[in-house]
């Protein structure tokens, strides 16, 4: 019996977004990263085209973080002491994008400063030829204070700036407009809010080709199903022609998975949780791969081993040989 494989006919596709600029494009990056452009649900090659694979970003910090799991800090070793080395290590791990997160305070507890931010951004830009993202610590006022100098320092590099949220996006968008960058538009697990913020950012004059959409997701066991379904819905809406949902999606399984108890804590937890290190690695990996299946275009990771592990899955899924 010849079974006819059902194929969906989609009418639209995900928008292409390019991060980073080479010297011909006014920047200094050795290569750029383009994501998006697919015209079907993830990896269903038989009903659409997938010009760009999902990409991996590796999170680095402007200084050694105080609150990261010891497993991560051990795995990173010395590289976590210096953002430039960290960026190089991330490149060596196989990152497509360096995701630099700025701290609210410096190591000695004083507030981070624009001068320090400029220095760190410069260092990272000099240390790697990969495109970069620079995001604030996630507190509106501090974000705005730190992202503007970062944007200025990286003028023309087409950096992904963040994080734009409904209550605080205007300054970051303005900085992106002023210095030719992109922004990450983050909303709390809701299709309509995702759309709305994209519209608001676009209304300020930033072209849709410079907006990455971050629908927010929880970690495995901590609300991943919400993010998963919101992403599936956004992608379905995008493919059926809803223009403001067609931004490629960036999500942060690294941060989500590494803040939960399963990854952070090795002692005093149920025996049934199993080996701490393997569990923690699984937590980040499975959160990431599950989100890739629901449409993520960029996933941000933290652990070096997982970068390789997830890379292999993406490569397998992206090979249209079967």
């Amino acid at each position: 019996m010849a079974v006819e494989i059902p194929k969906e006919k989609w009418t639209a596709q995900v928008r292409k977004v390019t991060i980073g600029a080479t010297s011909e494009e006014g920047g200094t990056r050795a290569k750029t990263l383009t994501v998006g452009g697919e015209s079907a649900l993830p990896f269903l090659h038989y009903e659409g085209s997938f010009p760009n694979k999902p990409a991996l970003a590796v999170e680095i910090r402007d200084r050694k973080p105080d609150d990261w799991s010891p497993l991560l800090l051990d795995a990173l070793g010395e590289t976590a002491e210096d953002p430039a080395k960290w960026a190089q290590a991330a490149e060596a791990m196989g990152a497509d994008l360096i995701y630099l997160v700025l701290s609210a305070a410096t190591a000695d507890g004083n507030p981070n400063t624009p001068e320090n931010v400029r220095a760190v951004v410069r260092k990272v830009l000099d240390a790697t030829g990969l495109p970069i993202a620079v995001v604030g610590p996630g507190q509106a006022e501090i974000d705005n204070e730190l992202i503007v100098p970062a944007a200025e320092e990286a003028d023309g590099e087409r950096v992904l700036l963040g994080v734009c949220e409904e209550k605080n996006y205007r300054t970051i968008v303005a900085a992106a407009l002023a210095h030719n960058h992109l922004v990450q538009s983050k909303t709390p697990m809701d299709v309509n809010l995702s759309k709305q913020l994209v519209i608001l950012i676009n209304d300020m004059g930033l072209p849709l080709e410079r907006i990455m959409m971050d629908p927010t997701t929880g970690a495995l066991g901590y609300g991943i199903e919400y993010g998963y379904s919101v992403m599936e819905r956004l992608r379905l809406a995008a493919l059926t022609g809803d223009k403001m949902t067609q931004q490629p999606m960036i999500v942060d399984p690294g941060a989500e998975a590494w803040k939960v108890k399963e990854s952070k804590v090795g002692e005093g937890v149920p025996e049934a949780w199993g080996d701490w290190n393997r569990r923690a690695l699984n937590w980040e990996t499975l959160t990431a791969t599950t989100l890739i299946h629901s449409g993520a275009n960029i996933v941000i990771l933290r652990h070096p081993e997982n970068v390789a592990r997830v890379r292999k899955v993406i490569d397998d899924l992206s090979s249209a040989t079967t």
Partner: peptide
Amino acid sequence: FDPSTLYAL
């Protein structure tokens, strides 16, 4: 049978 994987799954 590996609890660290099974739990996650």
